[in-house]
Nucleic acid binder design. Structure first.
Length: 731
RNA sequence: GGGCGAUUAGCUCAGUUGGCUAGAGCGUCCGGUUUACACCCGGAAGGUCGCAGGUUCAAGCCCUGCAUCGCCCACCA
């Protein structure tokens, strides 16, 4: 008997050694598995890319959860003989990372990015990213993740950079990327544009004011943002509204709060007759809706608020130069003095905030780069059913068909509905950011007298005088290429041919729009292919009270802390059991503790079996009772296999827990004691039974609890493979 | 405003196309056990399956309405 068995199982003394053993074997890399004859070279491929965590800090339990789920699927696939590849990577996360570092710098040194300059900021952010990267990779390894580290990718490494530039240029050439002056979401705090999906809403108390621009203006209007009214160029009313019909088409000019306004009355369907006064003061430059109204009626769009959320000169003498909130007070005061204010009421209103910086988003017109989601283009080749090569299609249609034609299956299926709804409401995607950390846009500027020439290409044109675009790309632009940029695209690598489309994608449901849908877009456009076949969305790991883990609540838990106390196997089991696809999970340390007990149970079961089966004869015939027990186990085995196949790891894990503890240990092992004591004629059969079930149980448990199962496996006197990790899944 | 989810034992959750005398883990209570394991074993208590209707031989599961909590989306200024 190995002396290890004399003590309770110790994850701390085991896990690191086991991980080293795996890494040294090289079997995380499918090429090695094929070379060593473990995987058939014609085996079906199975591939997953790790959703690359942002290099903004340490990993949290949500990452641990995601890693546990993926690793279970990966190990299962590998044991079933698939050509199995799981690609690791990290994401530079442009704005999130830069915002973190800037905040830190400001706190410590009271310096802004403009004090330090582009080069210094980028170098500091890179240093920060590098440190986090190291921490994160260590955390991932501690979880037992069987990732092929030889294929590690970082969104800002050389190959991924090349892929990003290539993707941009190709889309530009296809007319799907354009530069245009349009209304965007401006984050005054982060001093950058952000996409619609990076805006979060928060309900706050606000005031709703009803007034007229001047005394004899015919229509009263209502607003919650009086300060923007100095930028109004129209009043929109519903075409059916009898009250205002006579004014439509007329223009009124007058003095309003220190400026002169020329207001045209227009009729537009978006206006709700019943709401407010049934008339909208249109501020084209500072409201998305109003911008669109201006589009339809060809209205002027004066900008009255600048990038610092201050009123500019165009705003007029009363409020010019003031902060927006000061301007609001000032205008209300002015309205009162001039007895123009007809009504003020308290309302609840949604305000828009930048997800990353918390700054209040100010809609502004700006010259930016966009991806056009509504422009038809000819798709050169297509392996997507429902889309023919050479067909004219828009990116929106492409994203729709990818799912609706059954090409991609989303689990739980209910998320398909929100995916489709998101696409229906999708506007052109603003991809340029006014920050410094990220992929610089492959566009080049050269001034020619008063005008500017632009060249889009990987490299600057030969002649002198060209300088690269200052803006960087939205981080999701590069993430969207991830399934194929990690496989070597734009080169036509063997990896790309073998492993793309990937088999599974396991992101959290919160990035269905930000990431999943955009991977579909990019993969569809660049490869005429889907990025993956199945998407399994997992929920959020919450604390015991159901709250999100967050810095401000101070309830964060480092997975390493839990691994230190209970072991990675226990953490993995605790996260997987009870976590149905798409459901949030509550994290309870007691639960993890329970699974630590389970690891010890496995340990003791193994000790008992090995102690009592030293002289086992594997050619023995089962007696009837044992045959029945083995058959019942085979039923469990099939059930577990089926559950994993239909992506219900939670059920498979629970079934295994229950069988191992309450059937194998409590019933079969206990009864074996009596057999060894009193039934010599049944002993030989029973010994074979115990060792055979134990060996198979270790295999079944391996995807969930890889460390302890591998450790026990190493102590088995006879086995069909040196490492459990590459043993054959029992059928 | 639109959409989605949850509501089952004290807690966390299963319950797959309706067949359930409704399950598991943890917790609680009672008893036991020292050569596999106290990180243990045996046993018990504990539920009108959110509420109200309906379909059906049969409903936790299907239909309708309602309530509470939560999430997502949205151009009610």
């Amino acid at each position: 008997m190995d002396e290890k068995f004399l003590k309770p199982y110790s994850p701390k003394e085991t896990e690191d050694n086991i991980y080293k053993l795996w890494e040294e074997s090289g079997f995380f890399n499918p090429d090695v598995c094929i070379k060593e004859g473990i995987t058939d070279k014609d085996a079906r491929p199975f591939s997953i890319v790790l959703p690359p965590p942002n290099v903004t800090g340490r990993l949290h339990l949500g990452h641990a959860f995601e890693d546990a789920l993926q690793d279970a699927f990966v190990r299962f696939a590998r044991m079933r003989g698939k050509k199995t590849l799981w690609i690791p990577g990290t994401d530079s996360a442009a704005i999130a990372t830069q915002a973190r570092v800037e905040k830190e710098i400001y706190k410590k040194e009271k310096k802004t990015r403009h004090d330090l300059g582009r080069e210094e900021i980028v170098s500091r952010v890179e240093k920060f990213a590098k440190e986090n990267e190291e921490t994160m990779l260590n955390q991932i390894k501690k979880m037992g993740a069987s990732l092929d580290w030889s294929r590690y990718a970082y969104t800002l490494d050389e190959k991924r950079n090349a892929a990003v530039s290539e993707a941009f240029v190709q889309m530009y050439d296809a007319g799907l990327i354009y530069r245009g002056n349009r209304i965007i979401n401006w984050d005054p705090k982060g001093q950058t544009t952000i996409s619609d999906d990076e805006v979060v809403h928060e309900e706050r108390d606000g005031m709703f004011f009803t007034f007229r621009y001047w005394k004899d203006f015919p229509i009263p209007i209502s607003t919650s943002r009086p300060e923007t009214k100095v930028g109004d160029t129209a009043v929109a009313v519903n075409p059916e509204d009898k009250r205002y019909k006579e004014f439509v088409g007329k223009t009124f000019t007058g003095e309003f709060a220190g400026t002169t306004l020329s207001i045209r009355i227009v009729a537009d369907d978006v206006v709700d007759k019943e709401f407010g006064t049934g008339a909208v003061g249109v501020t084209p430059a500072h409201s998305h809706t109003d911008w669109e109204i201006a589009d339809r009626h060809d209205l002027p769009r004066p900008q009255v608020i600048n990038e610092y959320a201050k009123m500019n000169e165009t705003a007029g003498s009363l409020v010019g130069g003031l902060k927006t909130l000061e301007a609001r007070e000032k205008i209300i005061e002015w309205l009162r003095e001039n007895t123009l204010l007809e009504k003020e009421e308290k309302i609840k209103q949604n305000i828009s905030l930048s997800e990353r910086t918390g700054g209040i988003v100010e809609p502004l017109p700006k010259l930016q780069w966009f991806v056009n989601v509504n422009k038809p283009f000819k798709i050169p080749h297509s392996k997507i059913s429902g889309i023919k090569a050479g067909e004219e299609i828009t990116l929106k249609e492409l994203m729709h068909k990818a799912v609706s034609e059954g090409n991609i299956e989303i689990l739980p299926a209910r998320f398909e509905k929100s995916y489709n709804h998101w696409i229906d409401n999708l506007h052109d995607w603003c991809i340029s950011r006014q920050i410094w950390f990220g992929h610089r846009i492959p566009a080049w500027h050269k001034s020619k007298g008063a005008t500017e020439e632009i060249h889009v290409g990987i490299n600057a044109p030969e002649e002198s005088g060209w300088s690269q675009e200052e803006d960087v790309l939205d981080t999701w632009f590069s993430s969207a290429l991830w399934t194929f940029s990690t496989l070597g695209w734009p080169e036509e690598t063997d990896d790309l041919k073998t492993y793309h489309p990937t088999t599974l994608m396991l992101p959290g449901y919160e990035i269905l729009f930000l990431w999943v849908s955009r991977m579909v877009l990019m993969s569809g456009f660049h490869l005429g292919e889907l990025p993956f076949k199945n998407v399994i969305l997992h929920g959020i790991v919450r604390d015991r009270q159901g709250r999100k883990f967050s810095k401000s609540l101070g309830n964060g838990i480092d997975p390493l802390e839990i691994i230190e106390k209970y072991g990675a196997d226990a953490l993995r089991m605790g996260l997987i059991v009870g976590a149905a696809p798409g459901n949030d999970v509550k994290f309870d340390e007691q639960k993890i503790k329970g699974y630590k007990h389970f690891t010890n149970k496995i340990w003791n079961i193994s000790r008992f079996v090995l102690e009592n089966t030293k002289d086992v004869n594997m050619d023995a015939e089962y007696v009837k009772e044992d045959r029945v027990i083995r058959e019942r186990f085979d039923v469990v085995l099939k059930e577990v296999t089926k559950d994993i196949e239909r992506y219900r790891l939670d059920l498979a894990a629970e079934t295994l827990y229950h069988y191992t503890w309450h059937t194998f240990a409590d019933t079969i092992l206990e009864h074996s004691k009596a057999i060894f004591e009193d039934e010599p004629e049944n002993v030989e059969s029973r010994k074979k039974l115990l060792i055979s079930i134990l060996a198979d149980l270790l295999k079944l448990l391996h995807p969930f609890m890889p460390f302890i199962t591998e450790e026990v496996w190493s102590l088995l006197p006879r086995k069909d493979s040196e490492l459990l990790m590459v043993s054959k899944w029992p059928e």
